[in-house]
């Protein structure tokens, strides 16, 4: 008698793989050494399927699906790479670059940025869509950290880590569409936040230079995320 989740078999890029029914396409692909580009996804945080970079094709479904939030199914035939997917991913990256003011040459995270890495992977040398050059502010009111909205890609990793791991829920979103931005507390300066514990997890999960430590100059900000799987494991251990 089976008590836990059932096992499903499927193919990813023609490679037959096995998976538990509660696992996502992304998890299984990574387990089997198949790379799917991601941006808003971070192991240890609840996936949201927001950035749309991890789109993969599933036979029988017209639209590509986000690998990070799609559970495996028996007999699924997944394709993680095709000219169509590359075109979509490139365009999504272009849209992200055009949305705010990403200037790598003056960025603290230059050389350590998930967005930059992906741009290089896709050979993005220029944009076909026009830059929007929005006017965004920098919040440097916190004693140790800086928030630069110009570099934010609205992946909400900071929101999720603060809520799910730190348990403070200092971060949230404000506004909608392209006017959306991350805020601390009820849209107050970060430095005056009553809930922020100053743990810095948000800074280290941030994929770009939007959140950084003070005192870091160009190319000096390096993010370390080892704490995340560790804390997840510890927490799960306590819950069992």
């Amino acid at each position: 008698m089976i008590t836990g989740p059932r096992i499903k078999t499927l193919t990813i890029d023609d490679k037959p793989v096995g998976a538990r029914e509660d696992e996502t396409i992304l998890t299984i692909a990574r387990e089997n050494g198949i790379r799917i580009p991601t941006l808003c996804h971070l192991e240890g945080l609840t996936p949201i399927g927001g950035c749309r970079l991890c789109l993969v094709e599933v036979k029988g479904i017209a639209r590509p699906v986000a690998a990070c939030v799609t559970s495996v199914q028996e007999g699924m035939e997944v394709t993680t790479d095709s000219p169509r997917l590359t075109q979509y991913r490139r365009m999504v990256l272009e849209l992200l670059f055009s949305e705010r003011n990403h200037v790598c040459s003056v960025c603290v995270s230059n050389g350590g940025c998930d967005l930059q890495d992906l741009a290089q992977e896709f050979g993005l040398t220029h944009l076909t869509v026009p830059y929007q050059y929005p006017r965004h502010k920098v919040d440097a009111s916190h004693p140790w950290f800086t928030l630069d909205h110009n570099r934010c890609i609205l992946c909400t990793r900071c929101v999720r880590v603060c809520d799910e791991i730190e348990g403070a829920h200092t971060w949230d979103l404000f506004g909608r569409g392209m006017q959306a931005r991350v805020i601390t507390d009820l849209n107050q300066p970060w430095g005056s936040s009553q809930t922020c514990t100053g743990c810095g997890k948000c800074v280290h999960v941030c994929p770009t230079g939007a959140l950084s430590e003070k005192g870091k100059s160009v190319r000096e900000m390096r993010k370390s995320r080892e704490f995340l799987p560790y804390l997840r494991l510890m927490r799960q251990g306590r819950q069992v």
Partner: peptide, 21 residues
């Protein structure tokens, strides 16, 4: 659509802005 996009996913959030322009 541009003003009513919630901003969660990239294509709708930014794509509608470009299409409108």
């Amino acid at each position: 659509c541009r003003t009513e996009s919630c901003g969660k996913c990239t294509p709708c959030r930014v794509g509608t802005v470009h299409m409108h322009q």
